[in-house]
Design a protein around this nucleic acid. Structure first.
Lengths: 202, 202
DNA sequence: GTCTATAGGGAGATAGAC
DNA sequence: GTCTATCTCCCTATAGAC
């Protein structure tokens, strides 16, 4: 049986359910506040059974963190790569903003888990994970650097500060976004307009 | 003896030391990850003694959260109020950005504690605190609304989205700011330029 | 694969001495 | 005001049955 079969094996389903449950509970209670019992209950099994899939709480949070950033990076790079070659730097940035905001909301449990456990995760786990985060930061840095090189962005802006400011503003969305109150497309559109055009009247 | 005497009574000094220690540890470990024993050690006393000043861990985090947002709001409103009456909307916004960024770094333990314990604090404690946060949000909302009314900001921007985006970007600073690597003034200046003028080349 | 039972370690909070 | 001692509860992780 191929590993890429669409039908997942039982063990893969169980593992995925535990991972989802873990993201959900880590998101609500942070790392230390999360108990294996709470994750187990959310996943519909007993606490002891988690250890068949993950050998410790540390390994579990590591898997949640890595899955979250990987899913986010995959969504965004995929969206940008689909653009035609002649797409302008501004279009690329707008697309990335839209994809980023959509993804952090779509993978809300994972995204918020990442925020909540910041600074609570054992340092050896965090060090491993941080490399993935930096890759994603580099993606954005290159996006902005190319735009600047091609004349789409002001030459006087510090790209590192701009990137951290922009991503800080985008990521905050998960904390206040309510699907019933706002449309994601409109929010992403507003963000792009704010960071590209500024809010000053002309 | 007046309560407003500059010389603090012993009990006030102790209480302040416990509060500072609590902010420091909550910042590092989140709410659930923080132990009363760790706070006590940081404050130079024994765990049992904390209960002379605060009657529970819940009351302690409540005090840290309230002090943090109050200090932040005080710093920012104070800076803006000092501006001359004829200051332009743009100047007011720049001043507020500068004061906000300075304050969140100055009160770093309290600011970061607020971020870390998000979603981990018992809901009755959080509900009380959230009112103070909303007051500060209102302050920013009015600042932007006045600027827009006076023609300093584009009429087509949604002030709520703009405010959440801006504050999200500003608040993220505490996570990456390193005094040896950056100057706070330069960062605040960059933020103001980004949000007001935009990063697109003209 | 998942269960139950439990070992071993800390947690928050209180009481009473000083 | 602060300390020490302690009650009671709940945590992670393991072992062995099914």
């Amino acid at each position: 049986m191929s590993k890429k079969s669409l039908k997942l094996k039982k063990v893969e389903v169980s593992r995925a359910r535990v991972l989802d449950a873990a993201a959900h509970i880590f998101r609500e209670r942070g790392f230390v506040g999360t108990t294996m019992r709470a994750i187990a209950q959310d996943a519909g099994i007993e606490a002891g059974s988690i250890y068949y899939h993950f050998k410790s709480k540390d390994e579990l949070i590591g898997a949640v963190l890595d899955f979250g950033i990987t899913a986010l990076q995959g969504s965004v790079t995929n969206a940008v790569d689909k653009l035609p070659k002649y797409a302008t730097p501004k279009e690329r940035i707008k697309t990335a903003i839209n994809a980023h905001v959509s993804a952090i909301v779509k993978y809300g449990d994972y995204t918020l888990a990442m925020r909540r456990v910041f600074g609570q995760v054992p340092s050896n786990v965090w060090r491993k994970h941080v490399k993935l985060r930096e890759e994603y930061g580099d993606f954005w840095h290159n996006l902005l650097a190319n735009a600047q090189k091609q004349g789409g962005l002001r030459k006087d802006i510090d790209l590192t500060i701009a990137r951290l400011f922009l991503l800080g503003g985008l990521n905050w969305t998960v904390e206040w976004f309510k699907p019933k109150k706002h449309s994601l497309e409109q929010i992403a559109e507003s963000f792009a307009s704010l960071i590209l055009e500024g809010m000053k009247s002309k």
